[in-house]
């Protein structure tokens, strides 16, 4: 070993770069390359748009690209799920919220506390660099294990979910339930409800007033309505 002080930036762990890049020339490699570049490009676009609608749209594109990548990994069921849940459900949710709060930002990035935040980004870069050190193999890797025909199908994943991993499955369904209830509670307007209560009290007081015309009882009625208001 001539150079033990090698770093990931230079000679990747001692492996030959051309060896590592060779698989990209195959048919599979081209598909991966197209999908990967698409995903990266779309996600960068998503994170840099001022207009939220275009951000959401590029995110949808990212998810489609990811679904394709999942398929190349023989994860067919998850690829379908990715399209259904992310592109179908979650993104629709985002679109709705964009409709409610449709505001274009004047500035992309707030400068408040920017040194800390930038340092956080660099910390992320550092971690990726270290992890890449183990992800990238020292020499060209061998072939992947052969898979059964049912790998990644609905039947096989479902079998696993409902037999071995039933408890996490049920737990996550409970989490979804809690999230639904939480979403309703948080987004419900508290003021509207109290307005409704006050309005109902007023209606009751007015009906009382209309049935008693004598002014002597007026103050008493007001007290009653005040008490009713305080009660709610």
């Amino acid at each position: 070993m001539a150079d033990v002080a090698g770093t990931p930036g230079g000679n990747l762990g001692g492996a030959n770069v051309s060896d590592l890049l060779a698989p990209l020339a195959s048919g599979e490699g081209v598909v991966f390359l197209i999908l990967a570049l698409g995903v990266v490009a779309m996600s960068v676009v998503c994170m840099t748009r001022r207009n939220p609608v275009s951000a959401v749209m590029s995110l949808v594109a990212t998810f489609f690209g990811l679904a394709g990548l999942y398929a190349t990994l023989s994860a067919h069921f998850l690829a379908v799920l990715q399209v259904l849940v992310y592109a179908g459900a979650i993104m629709v949710l985002f679109i709705f919220v964009v409709m409610i709060v449709n505001r274009e930002e004047s500035t992309l990035v707030s400068l408040r506390g920017i040194p800390t935040r930038l340092l956080g980004v660099f910390a992320g870069v550092y971690m990726i660099r270290v992890f890449a050190g183990i992800a990238i193999p020292a020499q060209a890797p061998g072939p992947l294990p052969a898979l059964s025909d049912s790998f990644g199908t609905v039947a096989s994943v479902g079998d696993m979910l409902f037999r071995q991993d039933l408890f996490p499955f049920e737990a996550i369904s409970l989490l979804l339930l809690v999230a639904i209830v939480g979403g309703v509670v948080v987004s419900r307007s508290a003021r509207k409800e109290s307005d409704a209560v006050i309005a109902a009290d007023k209606r009751i007081a007015i009906s009382h007033l209309s049935s008693h015309d004598s002014p002597a009882e007026l103050s008493e009625v007001e007290e009653t309505s005040a008490a009713a208001g305080g009660h709610h």
Binding site: A75, L78, L93, P168, A179, G183, V186
Partner: peptide
């Protein structure tokens, strides 16, 4: 795959609550 499935469900829940907030 099971983990990925659970993470998708988690992401859905997170998006729901996050957007509500």
């Amino acid at each position: 795959h099971v983990f990925a499935f659970l993470i998708i469900a988690l992401a859905a829940a997170e998006a729901a609550v996050g957007l509500a907030i």
